[in-house]
Write a protein that binds this DNA or RNA. Structure first.
Lengths: 156, 156
DNA sequence: GCATAACCGACCGCTTCAGTAGGATTTGAA
DNA sequence: TTCAAATCCTACTGAAGCGGTCGGTTATGC
């Protein structure tokens, strides 16, 4: 499995927030009930989203969470990365300060890391899929009927 | 991390087999030494590759492993899948008998699984990257000099 | 001041990962 | 025919992450 339920639940949570029309905050409890997910586990996940600046919170009674930006401006790579940590195909991949992806096996002596080409391509495919999908798309997808959905999937 | 070291080690192992020119088998011990990987762990991995029909083995002295097919005909999705199990972005994804990918949250009541669109796109990106890369490419990549490599990565 | 909600940290059972260990079987060669 | 090299197989282990629970603290509206 590429991702755990952290990404699954967290994305569901984000979509649920994106569904709300008004600007008043939505309590985690209502999200948990709507999506049938454990409240106390969602608390951990939403904390990651908040620290990543994807949602804002208001405390106290009638408090809750709302999106920090319009759903159209939220790319899913940011959401998944906030929940799962850095999206790298392999342990040895890490972001260098300059933003490039490196492989720590690079200096292996006679021949360079033979897997780098493969993982670079995989990472490219994943980030392209994630960054090319906005939260607004998912919200719309979830609200419309089945026939429309089949077409949307291939429009990546 | 999308994949574990099982895929990393296993792919390295396959590349090492692909590097060998002749048709005589290569012992796991020599692969372990060349790639600096624990022999007994490689035994587990190569067993998966063998069961998947990607390598063949000859037992006894001077025995070892070799590729079951020419490297040009080995697509990396088969290799990674043999090592890691089915390549699905999320637990709820599974292959139906007809070969289509399904999501077990599909019947969620009022609105369909809001994450399906996203995970379908991710899976598409990954499988495209893996299936579009052959073992032969990795072998060649590992044998050539650094400048050539930068170009190869973007040629996914 | 009370209910509601966000926040925070500790804990727990479970599974997987990465690796080890020990043996058995097969085979070529001395 | 015996030995060494190799595949093959099963069981085990420590560590880490996952999925989730729990108890408590803080902030806020009514």
């Amino acid at each position: 499995m590429l991702f755990s339920t952290k990404a699954e639940y967290g994305v569901r949570l984000m979509v649920e927030l994106g569904r709300q029309p008004g600007s008043q905050p939505v309590s985690l409890g209502s999200v948990a009930e709507a999506e049938n997910l454990p409240l106390s586990y969602l608390e951990h996940l939403v904390a990651k989203l908040r620290k990543a600046g994807l949602v804002t919170s208001t405390r106290g009674a009638h408090g809750g969470y709302r999106l920090a930006k319009p759903a159209e401006e939220i790319q899913m790579d940011a959401v998944v990365e906030a929940l799962e940590g850095q999206i790298a195909p392999m342990e040895c991949f890490h972001d260098s300060p300059e933003g490039k992806v490196l492989c720590s096996h690079e200096s292996d002596g006679d021949h360079a890391c033979s897997t780098k080409l493969l993982w670079m391509r995989v990472q490219g495919g994943v980030t392209k899929a994630l960054a090319g999908t906005t939260l607004a798309e998912l919200v719309e997808f979830s609200e419309h009927s089945a026939p429309k959905r089949a077409a949307a999937i291939s429009a990546a």
